[in-house]
Design a protein around this nucleic acid. Structure first.
Lengths: 181, 181
DNA sequence: AGAAATTATTTTAAGCCTAAAATGTTTTTG
DNA sequence: CAAAAACATTTTAGGCTTAAAATAATTTCT
């Protein structure tokens, strides 16, 4: 099966006939941003209304729920793709509320080990169940094939981003670029 | 051409054999969030390094650049999908820096009309050109067909989101859900 | 071992962002 | 026309977020 010549022509068009034109990529990015923002805002609202909590707190607890032995501040910071200082601040609130436990590692006292408390785990599990339903509800207009296709294309996007970003590794924070969960 | 039976089976699987399972949607959302965050962080870093400015300021100026006659605070707030108070604050900084002009509308003194100053427009245009290149660079791993496909699927996602969100219109802020630009 | 470098986290200062209440203006209504 | 309702924006209080500097602990190097 040969590569369709139309594709080749498209690439030629992109590369040669419209040099410096990147409007399609820009439109794509703006649309992706719109989708992300709509979802984030909606989840934020529902977390507040239904559980009187915030998205950063939920996200942090989601990381801790994935491990039995706990996680360091740096590890959480990398996975959530936020700064260390931010983790420190959000954790402080969760510790105050008895949802997270924080203690220095015995063998390396620089490191702080974070774990969910029993209550924290219970509270998180209840929220996570609802959260999963909300997400499904938001994507209800896409069938399974479309979801799979979109997932695949975003995978390619992620690869492209990593290549472009690590290509000029003078960046501030060491972005892990994990799957957030 | 008939619908492939495999697709029907897939939908049945989703609907009947794994009731309450929405892991695919969740994975999709986390991957989308990862992509958005990577792009946003990178653009933020480059705006700071190259132009000593921030993304919220850039986004606000981008809205004002699209009009000759100016825009109200509320209009900008809707288009950027942020709160009114936030626009007030960011605008204050831009006015101080001489990039944006703000004046009450003569016929309705509740309304504030925001416009780019001549300098603001000049500064913005320079940044916008670089910004467009950066976005293209980040998406360089996708060919034109993939970009088009992704754009289409995100369009469906947007429609799905609007249906799910406006369906329960007890939300706090009137999310416009525009294309951000 | 002791100095220097590295690593992990916290603190600081500043800006972003929101929801809700307050302010000032215009429109509607009785 | 005056009171009430609606509207646009700002203020307020509080939480999130970052970059950069500071602190504290461990590892490396001589």
């Amino acid at each position: 099966m040969e590569t369709p010549s139309s594709l080749i022509l498209d690439r030629e068009t992109k590369a040669n006939e419209r040099p410096g034109d990147h409007k399609d990529e820009l439109r794509l990015w703006l649309r992706m941003l719109t989708c992300s923002t709509l979802i984030e805002t909606e989840i934020r609202n529902r977390l507040r209304e239904e559980f009187k909590t915030t998205l950063p707190r939920f996200d942090l607890m989601a990381q801790l729920d994935k491990t039995a032995v706990g996680m360091t501040v740096g590890e959480v910071s990398q996975r959530l793709m936020v700064s260390n200082g931010n983790v420190t601040a959000v954790v402080a609130g969760l510790v105050t509320d008895g949802l997270v436990d924080k203690r220095s590692a015995p063998q390396d006292r620089r490191v702080q080990i974070l774990t969910l408390t029993a209550q924290g785990r219970k509270v998180f599990r209840a929220m996570a169940e609802r959260h999963e339903d909300w997400i499904a509800e938001l994507f209800a207009g896409l069938d399974q094939a479309e979801i799979a296709q979109l997932f695949r294309l975003l995978g390619q996007t992620k690869t492209s981003l990593h290549r472009a970003i690590t290509g000029r590794q003078d960046n501030a924070i060491g972005m892990a670029g994990g799957e957030n969960g």
